[in-house]
Lab assay of single mutants.
Amino acid sequence: MEVRTIKVFTTVDNINLHTQVVDMSMTYGQQFGPTYLDGADVTKIKPHNSHEGKTFYVLPNDDTLRVEAFEYYHTTDPSFLGRYMSALNHTKKWKYPQVNGLTSIKWADNNCYLATALLTLQQIELKFNPPALQDAYYRARAGEAANFCALILAYCNKTVGELGDVRETMSYLFQHANLDSCKRVLNVVCKTCGQQQTTLKGVEAVMYMGTLSYEQFKKGVQIPCTCGKQATKYLVQQESPFVMMSAPPAQYELKHGTFTCASEYTGNYQCGHYKHITSKETLYCIDGALLTKSSEYKGPITDVFYKENSYTTTIK
């Protein structure tokens, strides 16, 4: 009895394709271990004539594949690729409408935090270190965002349907971005203890939790000093293409032309909904596939993004 075979390709990165001759009487799992086709788990399936010449994702289970996976995804987590594939199996079914010149995501599976993050990423200057993220990001900007969303979920250790947080998501993504040249110098002034300067680099240099107003941050924000008295913390120097200011959701007025974009969060910790506000020729609110415009805006804002380049204080 002759062994019926077909020729397929296996890959971990969709760049390096490895030619395989597979036995049609055995499952993919018996031949390769966990195997995925377009995100779908085909591990328990036997090869079919229609699979001839198709590319299958496999887990990096030998040295060659491990090197290829690390170079593309910059992670050695053995569960990463499987999590990416199972997320992709959902995100490829989502709709990605162009809204006001940006790629958004039609609401499904509690994905409003991903839509808000995706919209924000198209408006701030950011370059990702893992080629996987950078490639998928370019495709997302062009309207094909399924891979990018699935990668975000995998890097953030999230599953489809789980509630997510924009600030946490951005923080994970910033860790995989090139923020080497970003720098922030802060000064804390206390009447009792004097003053202390701190220099922050990388992710810490672009994120701040405690106030939404970048102007206020430049002037000074009140913080408790270690001595128990009130101290003032203010920005001395900022070198970065953008800054992200966050605070627990509270009524906040966004003035046209003073910011790049913002995240609105309605609801409580267990259950809520994100919308995205962007400042173009007027203010726009993007909620999944829905767009509304207004000249002014007041609502429960939790993150505001500002364009920056270089700032030095005039406070002496």
Rank of each mutant, 00 (worst) to 15 (best):
E168D: 03
S50M: 13
L291G: 12
L173M: 13
T43S: 14
W107K: 04
A250N: 09
K95T: 13
P248T: 10
T5S: 10
Y137I: 05
S240I: 01
L163E: 14
H256W: 14
I124K: 04
A115K: 06
N147R: 10
N16G: 07
I105H: 06
C271K: 13
T10H: 05
S86D: 14
K316A: 15
N16I: 04
E71T: 11
C112V: 03
P249W: 00
Q98C: 12
C193V: 03
C149W: 02
A231R: 03
F80T: 03
V22R: 03
A154N: 07
N129E: 08
Y72G: 05
F128T: 01
G143E: 02
T260P: 01
P97G: 07
C190P: 00
L173Q: 02
T199Q: 11
S279E: 05
A117I: 10
M244V: 09
F32D: 08
T43V: 05
A231Q: 01
K233G: 10
Y252V: 13
S294P: 07
T120W: 01
L291F: 15
P47R: 04
G194M: 03
T76V: 13
T260D: 15
K54D: 12
H276N: 08
V206K: 03
T10W: 05
F70K: 09
K298A: 13
Y208D: 06
T198P: 02
T314K: 15
K44H: 09
A87V: 02
T116S: 11
Y214T: 04
L283R: 01
K201G: 09
L102M: 12
I301T: 01
H273L: 01
H256D: 07
L88A: 05
Q196F: 13
T11D: 06
K95A: 10
M170K: 04
S240R: 01
Q230E: 09
T10I: 12
D62A: 09
L17H: 11
Y274W: 00
W94F: 04
K307T: 15
L17P: 15
G101C: 05
M245V: 04
K127F: 08
A205G: 02
V8G: 04
Q20V: 10
C271H: 14
I277P: 01
E71S: 15
G267L: 12
G164M: 02
V12C: 08
Y269G: 15
E144C: 07
F70H: 06
V243F: 02
G82A: 15
Q251P: 14
Y96D: 03
S86F: 09
K106Q: 15
Y306S: 02
T211H: 09
T103A: 07
K201A: 05
N178I: 05
Q238T: 01
V243Q: 06
N187T: 11
T226H: 13
N187Q: 11
D62M: 03
R141N: 07
S279A: 10
C285S: 09
G53A: 13
L118P: 04
A136H: 09
V166N: 00
R66Y: 08
T314G: 10
Q230S: 12
E2I: 08
H48P: 12
I105K: 03
K158S: 06
T292S: 10
A132M: 07
C227W: 00
T232P: 02
S181K: 12
H276S: 06
T169S: 05
G210M: 05
C190W: 02
A205S: 06
H51L: 02
H18R: 07
L283C: 09
T55M: 08
A40F: 12
Q30C: 15
V188H: 07
K307Y: 00
H273T: 01
C156M: 12
P241I: 04
L291D: 10
K92W: 01
I315F: 15
I152F: 01
T192E: 13
N187A: 11
S240Q: 03
P97H: 11
Q175E: 05
S181N: 12
V243H: 02
T76C: 14
C190L: 03
K191M: 08
E71A: 13
L200Q: 14
D109T: 06
K229P: 02
T159P: 09
A150C: 03
H90K: 13
F56E: 03
